[in-house]
């Protein structure tokens, strides 16, 4: 168990280093940082001096080590576009994206898991057929189209819900939240549904497939032959055995949620990380892009580690070794 986690930890470190190297390459070799920082009229000598000051004349491995050192000490440099510290820019945007992503994921789980179980247990019911056709359309309609549809229906036609921004927010320390006001929740509903719908269809299809697989196994047939209550067979024995793959995919989806938040934030003008990233791509704002990249890599790696720990909690074959 402990060696297992330790090994995953080291692997995660390597993945993080690879992502950092990617970000560094982006930072160092895409465009010239100095010409980005200075104007057209800067004298060549000044540019050279700046180059030395910034350490851009050092050997590349030294620069990379410094880059990683800066990342670890949360020193992310300055944006080419706004000239502000990247760290502050990101910190300001994180709460909006995390809240959006969290609610979207919640929607996808709360609807997707029971939906998948139902579809697996009642394969012939008309509701299941409707669900399956629904998921097929769900994976086929691009997120931005869903957003536009929702805006058109609930924002424009019915006028029930706001169609852009976060609504009114409350500041708790550095965290600006929209979860504490009715207005904030109203603003959150459409983007969260937009973002969650695609993940929901994936979750539903996965849970259904895994449930159907497990329902065919010997130990479920044995549980049936012992006359255990059907609720226990379905929810304790079968659903329990689908958890490992489901947890894996749901965790991977969190990465997907953050990525698709770029689209959702763009449609709803949601002031989160995605919008920031999109702006920085349009303006080739390399430092922001690089830090965003590292951040996404970090979230992914952290979630994967968490998943490994969850595996151990779910599956005794990982947790408990040795003969009885």
């Amino acid at each position: 168990m402990i060696p297992f986690v330790a090994r995953r930890l080291v692997q995660s470190l390597f993945v993080m280093l690879a992502v950092a190297a990617l970000a560094f390459a982006l930072f160092r070799f895409v465009g010239d940082p100095v010409s980005q920082m200075t104007g057209v009229e800067t004298a060549p000598e000044d540019m050279e001096r700046l180059r030395v000051e910034l350490g851009l004349t050092d050997p590349v491995p030294v620069q990379f080590a410094r880059f990683v050192g800066d990342l670890v000490t949360l020193d992310f440099g300055y944006s080419y576009r706004t000239r502000q510290p990247v760290g502050a820019m990101i910190a300001e945007r994180i709460p909006a994206t995390l809240e959006l992503g969290f609610v979207a994921l919640l929607i996808s789980l709360v609807v997707g898991v029971p939906g998948g179980v139902y579809a697996a247990l009642k394969p012939r019911s008309p509701a299941t057929q409707a669900l399956l056709i629904g998921t097929l359309i769900g994976v086929s309609v691009p997120t931005f189209v869903i957003g536009i549809l929702l805006i058109f229906l609930f924002g424009v036609q019915l006028g029930w819900l706001p169609t852009f921004g976060r609504g009114s927010t409350v500041e708790i320390g550095p965290w600006r939240t929209s979860l504490l006001t009715v207005d904030g929740w109203r603003a959150l509903i459409l983007p969260a549904i937009t973002l969650g719908l695609y993940q929901l269809t994936l979750t539903l299809r996965l849970v259904r497939a895994e449930m159907m697989e497990v329902m065919r196994t010997d130990h479920i047939r044995f549980a049936l032959a012992r006359g255990l209550p059907l609720t226990s067979i379905h929810y304790r024995h079968a659903l329990g055995n689908t958890l490992v793959p489901v947890v894996t995919i749901v965790a991977l989806q969190f990465g997907g949620v953050i990525a698709f938040s770029i689209v959702t934030e763009s449609v709803f003008q949601w002031p989160g990380l995605g919008l920031l990233f999109l702006e920085s791509i349009r303006f080739v704002d390399i430092p922001v892009m690089a830090v965003y990249l590292v951040l996404i890599g970090f979230v992914f790696v952290a979630i994967n580690l968490l998943v490994d720990l969850l595996y151990a909690a779910i599956d005794p074959r990982i947790r408990v070794t040795g003969a009885a």
Partner: peptide, 9 residues
Amino acid sequence: QTSLNPLMT
């Protein structure tokens, strides 16, 4: 090998 639920004691 397969007729017992692997997740329960």
